[in-house]
Computed example of a mutant assay.
Amino acid sequence: MAATLTAPAKSGAKGPVPQLVRQARRRNAALGMAAWILGILFVLPVVWMALTSFHSEPDAATNPPSLTAPLTLDGYREFFGAGGGNSPWPPLTNSMTASVMSTLFVLILAFPAAYALSIRPVKKWTDVLFFFLSTKMLPVVAGLLPIYLFAKETNMLDNIWLLVILYTSMNLPIAVWMMQSFLAEVPVAIIEAAQIDGAKLPTILLRVIAPIAGPGMAATALICFIFSWNEMLFAQVLTGVVAQTAPVFLTSMITSQGLFLAKVCAASLAISLPVLAAGFAAQDKLVQGLSLGAVK
C-alpha cells in the first residue's frame, strides 16, 4: 500500500525537474552568449586601434581598412620622437605626477572624512554626503573662467601643482562618497576593542580600520587615478609647455594636413598603458572593494 502511494509522487516529481534544468541551462547559455557579444563589442574598438597603430600611415588611411597590411613600428617611433618630433616623456611625467599626487592627497583627506560620516557619524550625515555629491553637478566649464583668472593672478598658469590641487578637489567628493560606504562595513566591535586596549584615534585609523578597508581604498585610489589621468579640459586651458599633460600632448598630433591616424593610435595606446596596467594590477582589489561597498 505504501509503495502504491509513493510511486505516483516519485513519478510526478521526476517529470518537471529535467524540464526546469533544461530551461535554466538555456537561459544561462543565452545570458553567456549575450555577455560574450557585449564584451566583444566593447573590446573590438581597442583591438582595432592597437592593430592600426602597427600599420603605416597609407595603410591606416585606406577605406575600407586592410587587415592583411604589413605591420610596422613607425607610429611608435614617431610618437617617441625618433623622427625629430617632440618627446612625450615630459607630458607623461606631468600626467603621472598630477595623477599620483592628487590621488594621495585625496586618500589622506577622504579617509578621516569618511570615518566621521560612517563609523562616528556627524549630525545629518546624509545631508553632508548629498552636499559632497552636489558639487559634481556643476558643469566643469562653468568654473573654468574663474579658475583661469585665479591662476593668472597668482602666477600659477602652466604649473603642474595647480593641476594637483584641481584634481584633488574634483575627486575628493567621489572618494568620500565611496569610502563612506566601505568604512560602514567595518565592525564597530573591533574599534571598541582597540579603544579598550588604549589605542588612540590615529592608531585606530592606521592599524585597525585601514587594513580592513584596504580593498575599498584601493578601488577609490584607482578610480581617482583614472579620472586624473584622463582629464583634459583644465589641462588644455591652464597649461602650456612646462606642465603639459599626456592627453593634451595627444591632441597636438592631430593636424589639418598629412596622415596621422597610425601615429595617433600608437600614441593613444601608449598613453593608455599606465591606466591599463594599474587596473590590471589592482583588479582583484577593485572588484573586492566595490563589492564591499555594495553589499549591506
Rank of each mutant, 00 (worst) to 15 (best):
M1P: 04
A9P: 01
A9I: 09
V21M: 14
R27Y: 07
R27W: 09
R27V: 10
L31S: 05
G32S: 10
A35K: 06
W36T: 04
P45Q: 00
A50H: 08
H55M: 15
H55E: 09
A60K: 00
T62A: 14
N63K: 11
L71A: 04
E78V: 07
N86T: 08
S87L: 01
M96R: 01
S99G: 11
F105E: 01
F105N: 00
A110N: 13
Y115R: 00
K124G: 13
L129M: 03
T135F: 05
M137N: 01
V141T: 00
F150M: 15
N155E: 13
D158K: 01
L162T: 02
L162P: 01
L163Q: 06
W177I: 12
L183P: 10
G198F: 06
T203L: 04
L205E: 14
L205V: 14
V208N: 14
I209V: 15
A210P: 00
P211D: 10
P211N: 09
I212S: 09
A218I: 10
A219L: 10
A221F: 14
I226V: 15
Q236F: 12
S252N: 09
S252Y: 08
S256L: 11
G258Y: 01
L261W: 08
L261E: 04
L261I: 08
F280V: 14
L286Q: 09
V287Y: 08
A294D: 11
K296Q: 05
K296R: 10
